[in-house]
Design a protein around this nucleic acid. Sequence first.
DNA 1: CTTGCACCTCTAGCCACTAGAGGATGTAGG
DNA 2: CCTACATCCTCTAGTGGCTAGAGGTGCAAG
Lengths: 140, 140
Amino acid sequence: MKKITIGEAARKSGVKVPTIRYYEGIGLLREPSRSEGNQRSYEQSDLDRLTFIRHARELGFEVEAIRTLLSLQDNPLQPCATADAIAKARLIEVEQRIRSLMALKAELEMMVEGCGHGRVDQCRVIEVLADHAQCTHHGH
Amino acid sequence: MKKITIGEAARKSGVKVPTIRYYEGIGLLREPSRSEGNQRSYEQSDLDRLTFIRHARELGFEVEAIRTLLSLQDNPLQPCATADAIAKARLIEVEQRIRSLMALKAELEMMVEGCGHGRVDQCRVIEVLADHAQCTHHGH
DNA sequence: CTTGCACCTCTAGCCACTAGAGGATGTAGG
DNA sequence: CCTACATCCTCTAGTGGCTAGAGGTGCAAG
């Protein structure tokens, strides 16, 4: 089994070196064995775990959720209801966030389109910010 | 001019009491006058400013951007190109974020739909997280 | 043997708040 | 006037998820 340095692990997993050490610190990643000179030495399974973590982070899962998902991965005979629930909860969050951002987009477009590039006292951007009643979307 | 306490200002502006003090600390809000007992006393103009700030924060503008927008509001004879640029930059950010979230949504839906509610070793959620190659969207 | 990069630990900083301790003030009722 | 009790005050520290930097050690190529 060949030794993988932290730098190599970073390149292969796409997780930055300090972030790998951080994940070890918070217990997402096991403490790897060390070389004689006290340098971390990883195996393929660590790379897999790092890739899992990176992917989950990109999907916006919080570290605590990832901790749960990893422990599920480590116990493959358990029912997957928990994993399902975590993913569903995240899906709902994402859907809400999209809706909210669409409303913001509409409002920002209104501001930008209405800007006549004149002076601030006629600027739609400042005006809309100052007067919330002008928003078409009142969800916020 | 009637005195507005910080609690009233919070209720009327929708900005929480500690956040108002925080905004004062970072110089977004002027230091208000004080009562004899050293309690903050606000005016209508402070409420307007707080509402402006809250609205801008809801639109996702960063505090530094808001600082700039507020200084523009204070100098209405300036050209509004800066305000326009800030709003446009934020619009582009929002559009990118929406695109990215749509991709995440698709991926999460795939995970959730594929989950047969069986055991973890057949769970699509865990599987997709572990194997990035299964993603249809490779933007991340 | 030296150069220079990658590694080590540790602390502090980022953003925009939020929480809590410990104490002072203001107000309504008795 | 006294007593509750909410609200206010300042100050420090914590949140999440890293990131930056200081100050030092290991290791491989030339």
